[in-house]
Design a protein around this nucleic acid. Structure first.
Lengths: 225, 225
DNA sequence: GGCTCGCCGTCAGGATTCCGTAAGACGTGG
DNA sequence: CCACGTCTTACGGAATCCTGACGGCGAGCC
């Protein structure tokens, strides 16, 4: 079970994030400021850190910098909207990803899982899903079709991985928005367009999909071959 | 069969939601205010709660809070549009999902199924009804007859699933309108036409139905084979 | 910094599919 | 033979989906 440290001075935010991460099968530690965060990181093993940028005392950037001196634990930054410049700085300092407030807890959990998978400490062991001549390798972030490597974007990859992992099941656009995008609301046409783009790369005849099929009035389904 | 408790003070909303959930294969309880909701939850087992935020007496948030003291049953909140602040509070209190009014009943049912699936009590395993060589799989949204896949529309699929799930029972058009369509009124010929279309795809000789038979003066019945 | 490029989310138009209703033909029971 | 229920067909409107295009944003490269 991967260990995650959540650092945020807002008690409410922390509580929400922690409960969601626990529900997602993670061991979670908490910290309310930079100093206790660094202290916790000295004592306990952490596989990932969720770090708020704005902190009393030592701020998030400084925590990240000091952390990087001794460790390469992945960091996901929480930033308020409009802190454009800080975002760039944060990434330069070695943050692996960032989420802007306000965010949906589910989205954050998805990001956490994604980063952990990339690093190889994923919660799930079967990080490689296959269907016939299609192979989706989450750890290496590579998908191959009939031995040939597909050039997918991040979204397309996540969408493909989710659908293939649950082959045969029909999902509504709304469910996909929640499960793949991590949104609890949003324009469903986003899903439509991404499905279309994915079909262009996965289907032999995109106008007549045979694997990523649409279920009328419901959504989409991956047909196991 | 999963048990769902619906809590809303608006009688009309409750009726619609309940009928849709029943059509979706759920056992449904009702409550009109917070106190009776908590009372019901003490007595009966519930796998999920659909909870309106605005309630007379004890409001939804308070119900959710008290509920969380003793149970971890998943909660779907019904909120009016624009109650953004309550959203955070609700998440903190452990609501699993949100639906904003006005919503479509079908959407709500999808959310319910999704949450149940995530929690592991879902329809994914139990919601397959069969009758001889006919298999109706709700999660996959696939119906097969003698191994061959039927191409059914959503309405046809829902109708078929309901009838097969209650094989041997005769249903009037009015009952079917209520149970499958979720209407409390409407033109009964709607049912007639859909039955005909369904026969066209399910019966070997649609002019002489042997499985989806008509009970003269009453309605229709699925004959178990 | 300025530039280009790729990805993403949104939107509108058009095409497709589905749904509900009506209206007449047919069959059943009295 | 009549009244009523059921079947069949057809059609317009509605809902859904596909497609192409656009602007915004960040990344990478001068």
């Amino acid at each position: 079970m991967p260990n995650v440290l959540v650092v945020d001075d807002d008690h409410t935010v922390r509580e929400v994030v922690v409960s969601y991460l626990r529900a997602g099968g993670h061991q979670v530690y908490e910290a309310g400021d930079g100093e206790s965060a660094l202290a916790t990181l000295r004592d306990a093993r952490a596989d990932l850190v969720v770090l708020d940028l704005m902190l009393p005392g030592i701020d998030g950037l400084e925590v990240c910098r000091r952390l990087r001196e001794t460790s390469d634990v992945p960091v996901i930054m929480l930033t308020a909207l409009g802190e454009e410049t800080d975002r760039v700085v944060g990434l330069k300092l070695g943050a692996d990803d960032y989420v802007t407030k306000p965010f949906s807890p589910r989205e954050l959990v998805l990001r956490v899982d994604s980063v952990l998978r990339r690093v190889g400490r994923g919660a799930e062991h079967d990080d490689v899903v296959t269907d016939g001549d299609l192979v989706v390798d989450s750890a290496r972030h590579v998908a191959t079709l009939a031995g040939e490597r597909l050039s997918l974007t991040v979204r397309e990859f996540d969408l493909l991985r989710f659908l293939v992992a649950h082959a045969g099941v029909a999902w509504s656009r709304e469910e996909l928005l929640r499960e793949v995008w991590g949104w609890s609301f949003g324009d469903q046409s986003t899903v439509t367009v991404h499905v279309r783009r994915l079909r262009e790369k996965v289907e032999t005849d995109p106008t007549r999909p045979r694997r990523l099929v649409t279920v009328w009035g419901v959504g989409y389904r991956w047909e196991a071959s």
